[in-house]
């Protein structure tokens, strides 16, 4: 297995796809985070008008709103590790290098296992780099205001890395299932950029902002994984900082959490652990389907 993982790393490092996608991912994460931070005023104004804020007498300056931008940036940048994973098996099938890969591995299951492990590691590499870029973007964009505390940052970073790993593996499964690089990229992009977010919006609109079926879909669950941490952090901070907390009913606070989750990009999602479990299940389901398809595919 170690030999096959080494071979997979050599495969990845001897072509340019990994850094081509990584550079774009970093640019998108950094720019997105920076842009959102600098237009923070609008969002802050809106949130400050909310009843929770008014009743609780929270001063916005004490709230680390930048968590929202961090998760937003991570969510958009996960497109790239997803594509990277998507091309893992699809491009080998498309370019017919899968033939040699199968012929030099003890059996297909071991090769596919080595691919899964290798791409999980690469998903984490993408995740760490994306979080670094997004953090840098926020620091530059916000000029140092409303930064998150280290423990919160760490929690969101961990959720972000996990999200990248799972998106990579989900992409790998989808690519293996579809079997064509172009088809895989199109399907993943259409889902990740259009179908996923739009369906989240529609379902959440229908549910009036509550947790709903959108949170059970891959995109919603993945956004919930990162967004819930941000939303919970904000809610906690408000509870802790608020002078007039007694005036805030639990119902109102829940409503605020939904709003914050919305702002963090986790439309209609369930809580952190539920989202993590749901997205993990989606990623593993697609991975298993893709590997099963590859296991039984005739290579002609």
């Amino acid at each position: 297995m170690g030999r096959l993982i080494k071979a997979e790393f050599r495969k990845i490092l001897s072509t340019k796809l990994w850094w081509g996608l990584l550079i774009i991912a970093l640019l998108v994460a950094g720019t997105w985070a920076g842009m959102l931070s600098s237009v923070f005023d609008d969002l802050a104004a809106e949130l400050s008008r909310s009843e929770v804020m008014r009743l609780a007498g929270v001063r916005l300056n004490e709230i680390s709103f930048s968590v929202l931008f961090l998760t937003r940036a991570i969510n958009i940048a996960t497109i790239f590790p997803m594509l990277f994973g998507g091309l893992a098996i699809a491009s080998e099938l498309g370019r017919k290098t899968i033939t040699t890969s199968f012929l030099t591995a003890p059996n297909r299951a071991m090769l596919l296992g080595a691919k899964g492990i290798t791409y999980a590691i690469w998903g984490a590499i993408y995740g760490i780099a994306i979080i670094g870029a997004a953090t840098l973007g926020i620091v530059i964009g916000s000029g140092g205001d409303h930064l998150v505390g280290f423990s919160t940052w760490l929690a969101i970073a961990a959720a972000g890395v996990l999200s990248c790993v799972l998106w990579t593996l989900l992409g790998l499964g989808v690519g293996a299932l579809i079997g064509s690089p172009v088809g895989t990229v199109i399907v993943l992009l259409v889902y990740g950029l259009a179908l996923g977010p739009i369906s989240d919006l529609v379902f959440t609109g229908m549910a009036g902002g509550d947790a709903n079926v959108a949170g059970a879909l891959p995109n919603g669950a993945a956004n919930g994984l990162t967004g819930s941490t941000a939303a919970d952090t904000l809610a906690d901070e408000i509870q802790a900082n608020a002078t007039g907390m007694s005036k805030v009913s639990s119902e109102l606070l829940e409503g605020f959490q939904d709003t914050a989750r919305l702002a963090a990009g986790g439309l209609g999602s369930f809580g952190l652990l539920a989202s993590a479990a749901i997205f993990f299940a989606w990623a593993m389901a697609f991975l298993a389907l893709g590997l099963w398809r590859t296991q039984s595919r005739d290579i002609t």
Binding site: S14, K96, T99, T100
Partner: peptide
């Protein structure tokens, strides 16, 4: 029809 990655 055995494949090579064209950029490798």
């Amino acid at each position: 029809n055995e494949g090579f990655h064209p950029k490798r």
